[in-house]
């Protein structure tokens, strides 16, 4: 199944019944899939007049108690940042997909990881965090999409799925399982008319600084909980690795190929692949820092995630970087050559 279709199908099977979005390459297969499937399951598909409108339609549907989502690509995600800040502030659940393309500006439509900062630093205004998942395989994309709706509901937060054109276009066999049983607490915050109950307000305006501060700390406690409960990562041949590559998404697929090549030549190389970019799996990296001699961070950008790696490593092990921005997708041999170069240079 193609990545974009797997994503759409997982959302439908997760109970998503509202999709709002605006066309932008390279993710148009998502709204196209949803426009067909929502009709079949009696859900809502609406092409908004802009990304801004679409994310606000998601907000309205989420405040109505529906599982709602939108998808876009980098420039469109920039436009959605206002809405993301509001969703976070209002504590409304929603799933946002970013099929990252080359940038800044219009850039191009090739696979890129240049939106890491925007995704993990809260690209919108204000003091908030948002879970960000970076799947690397179609099955994982399917599973994570399904899980994202539960995470969004459980923590009442927007959740981002960060992929790229490669992730969206790739075709792999997958198992289309149904949504696992996850108990979602009753949505006692939604607005559906104040019939036989006190009226409700959904708002983020808190003019009193002391009250606002309380709200900020309340959100922070939730973010701390997420930071404790949500980190996910994959480790591949890290146990005895002297050189550990850290890469996510498409870059991690390539890196895995390079690790296999290096291993066939007898080099003790491993891979740590963050699946959640926020919360970042810093504990796992800290643990590896006790064993490995060198971290090599590989990103399809000029270097963004490496900041988080360095924060986790705390200077205990050197961190090198290799990046290919602009939509260039290197082949595993290229990464294998970089591995060899560092292996010799650092006398591992």
């Amino acid at each position: 199944m193609k990545g974009t279709d797997a994503l759409g199908e997982a959302a439908i099977r997760a109970g998503c019944r509202c999709y709002f979005g605006y066309p932008i390459t390279p993710q148009n297969e998502v709204p196209e899939y949803m426009s067909r499937r929502m009709q079949e399951v009696g859900g809502v598909f609406l092409q908004g007049e802009s990304e801004i409108a679409s994310i606000n339609m998601v907000l309205g549907a989420a405040a109505s108690g529906m599982r709602a989502m939108t998808s876009s690509s980098s420039p469109g995600i920039s436009l959605k940042q206002e809405g993301l800040s509001f969703l976070a502030a209002l504590e409304l659940p929603a799933v946002i997909v970013n099929i990252n393309r080359g940038g800044p500006g219009l850039g191009n439509i090739a696979p890129s990881q240049g939106d890491y900062y925007q995704a993990t630093r809260g690209g919108g205004h204000g003091d908030y965090r948002m879970p960000v998942y970076a799947p690397a395989y179609v099955q994982e994309l399917y599973d994570i999409t399904m899980k994202s709706f539960d995470v969004a509901d459980l923590y009442r937060t927007p959740v981002m799925i960060l992929g790229d054109g490669m992730m969206g276009q790739i075709v792999e066999p997958i198992y289309l399982h149904e949504r696992p049983d996850v108990e979602i607490p009753p949505k006692d915050y939604i607005l559906d008319g104040a019939e036989n109950r006190p009226s409700r307000i959904i708002k983020s305006l808190i003019l009193d600084p002391v009250e606002m501060e309380e709200h900020n700390w309340k959100l922070k406690r939730k973010y701390d909980l997420m930071a404790h409960e949500l980190p996910e990562w994959e480790e591949f041949m890290t146990n005895d690795a002297k050189l550990t590559i850290i890469a996510y998404g498409t870059a991690a697929r390539i890196a895995k190929g390079a690790v296999k090549r290096a291993r066939s030549e007898g080099l003790k190389v491993g891979l740590l692949r963050p699946i959640t970019l926020w919360p970042f799996p810093e504990e796992a990296i800290r643990n590896l820092a006790k064993k490995t001699k060198l971290f090599l961070v590989f990103e399809m950008s000029t270097g963004q995630m490496i900041d988080d790696v360095r924060l986790a490593v705390e200077g205990k092990v050197p961190c090198e970087f290799y990046g290919r921005p602009g939509g260039v997708v290197p082949i595993p041999q290229e990464i294998a050559r970089i591995i060899e170069r560092y292996w010799l240079q650092k006398e591992l």
């Binding site: 907000l59 309205g60 509001f86 307000i201």
Partner: peptide, 23 residues
């Protein structure tokens, strides 16, 4: 004294669309 949902500046009709399509 009835249900009210805040909006970002100018986004009222988009949020209202989300509400109406959902309910």
């Amino acid at each position: 004294d009835f249900d009210v949902c805040e909006s970002a500046h100018g986004r009222g009709c988009a949020i209202a669309t989300g509400f109406k399509r959902a309910q």
